[in-house]
Every structure is written in structure tokens, then in C-alpha cells.
């Protein structure tokens, strides 16, 4: 079964084998409001944890999406460029941003599980 983790930057990470799929959380989507533009990273780009790799824009805000873990981008969600509204419709499913091959699985330990993230959201509200 896939491991599911969350970052303090409101991103989710789903790991199967050494491949991680990354997107923004439903809570983040609600906060942003209508998403109007998404920019995803190039395949093959090597990124380190904390690096800004994608952009998500609503009418009122532009936000960077950071790589929650280090690795190499293996796939980017082309559907998002054409249909950014998908982020509002299915943030934690179809609207994944990109996939990457993990460089260091130990980095996952620094992230939260769902219960931890829910508590984090509650706390910062």
C-alpha cells in the first residue's frame, strides 16, 4: 500500500516504491479559491527538498509549490496546464502536480501523516 505523507506547505506526497506523487491538499485548494493557472516542472529536473518547482495561481494569489523531498522529476501532469480548475475539483486525486524518483527515502520521516496534518491545519486556523 502507498505511503501517504503531508508537508507544512500543504502538499501531499504518495509513495509507491521509489516514486512519489505530489500535489496540493484539499485544504490548500479551498484557501486559494478558484485556481486559474498551474505551471508544472520539466521532466528530468533534479530538485532538492524545499526547492520551488511548480506554481499555482488563483485570481488573488500566486504560490510556489515546493518539492517536499529530493529527487528527479519523472512525470508532470499535463492535464493541469489545460484545465487548472481540476485542482479545485480533485486536489488530492486527479490534480496531482508531478511525480519524482526519491533520492533519499529518509526525508519522508520529516513529513506528517494525515492525522498530523489535520491537527496542523486545525492549529494554524
Amino acid at each position: 500500500m502507498a505511503i501517504e505523507k503531508f508537508s507544512k506547505d500543504h502538499e501531499w506526497v504518495r509513495v509507491e516504491g521509489d516514486i512519489a506523487t505530489i500535489g496540493i491538499t484539499n485544504h490548500a485548494q479551498e484557501q486559494l479559491g478558484d485556481v486559474v493557472f498551474v505551471e508544472v516542472p520539466e521532466v528530468g529536473r533534479k530538485v532538492s527538498a524545499g526547492e520551488a518547482v511548480a506554481v499555482v495561481e488563483s485570481v488573488k494569489a500566486a504560490s510556489d509549490v515546493y518539492a517536499p523531498v529530493s529527487g528527479e522529476v519523472t512525470e508532470a501532469n499535463a492535464d493541469l496546464a489545460a484545465n487548472s480548475a481540476l485542482v479545485n475539483e480533485d486536489a488530492e486525486g486527479k490534480a496531482w502536480f508531478f511525480k519524482m524518483r526519491l533520492a533519499n527515502t529518509a526525508e519522508l520521516d520529516a513529513l506528517m501523516d494525515r492525522a498530523g496534518y489535520d491537527a496542523f491545519v486545525k492549529e494554524s486556523a
Binding site: 496540493i24 490548500a28 479559491g33 478558484d34 485570481v59 488573488k60 504560490s63 515546493y66
Partner: peptide, 12 residues
């Protein structure tokens, strides 16, 4: 992701 939740809400 860094969020700015202070901005102006859009929509008609």
C-alpha cells in the same frame, strides 16, 4: 506551497 490567504476573494 506558500499561501497568501489575505488576498481579495474573486468571483462575480
Amino acid at each position: 506551497m506558500a499561501m497568501n490567504t489575505q488576498g481579495r476573494p474573486p468571483g462575480p
